[in-house]
């Protein structure tokens, strides 16, 4: 076992994990952040996306030990029913959620983009969302939702 100290959604956790334990398992099983979804488990779908020190990663391809001393944002840290993040609100308003399984990852990819660039071009949005697959919506509504959130965030 290895000692791990990490910050998730601005709260610090200390725990012991196996060296080969994936970050997604640390988040879901040990810490209960089950908003992080496992899709393919091999970095193809982006359902398990979390933000690690400001950048999106697939938590199924990162080992828990690699998050030592680092800051993670999961979907639980983005907003809630009472105070949704602009991206979450836009997803609802645009109807960008169907089954919802890809949504936490989608929202986190969009948030990470808007945190760095509040006025992205449609092409920049396309690139930022390209690592997240959705099998329901056909993407149009998702891309529209990100554009809508960007307008709100940038005040345009």
């Amino acid at each position: 076992m290895v000692e791990l100290e990490l910050t998730v959604n601005e709260k610090t956790y200390k725990l012991e994990i196996e060296p080969d334990e994936r970050l997604i398992d640390v988040l879901r099983r040990r810490l209960g952040f089950t908003g992080t979804k496992e899709g393919c488990g091999e970095g193809e779908c982006g359902a398990c996306t979390v933000i690690l020190d400001g950048r999106t990663v697939n938590s199924c391809l990162v080992l828990g030990v690699q998050a030592h001393g680092r800051k993670i944002i999961t979907i639980e840290g983005v907003g809630d029913r009472r105070r949704p993040h602009p991206v979450q609100r836009a997803f609802v308003e645009e109807g960008a959620v169907q089954c919802g399984y890809c949504t936490p990852g989608m929202v986190l990819s969009a948030k990470a983009l808007l945190d760095k660039n509040s006025d992205p071009s449609p092409q920049e949005i396309g690139v930022a969302m390209s690592g997240n697959l959705c099998r329901c919506t056909g993407y149009d509504k998702i891309l529209r939702a990100v554009q809508r959130a960007a307008r709100e965030v940038s005040g345009k």
């Binding site: 990663v57 697939n58 391809l61 390209s130 690592g131």
Partner: peptide, 9 residues
């Protein structure tokens, strides 16, 4: 290469 998430890591 890969996706944004993979390129970040």
């Amino acid at each position: 290469m890969g996706s944004p998430q993979i390129r970040n890591q």
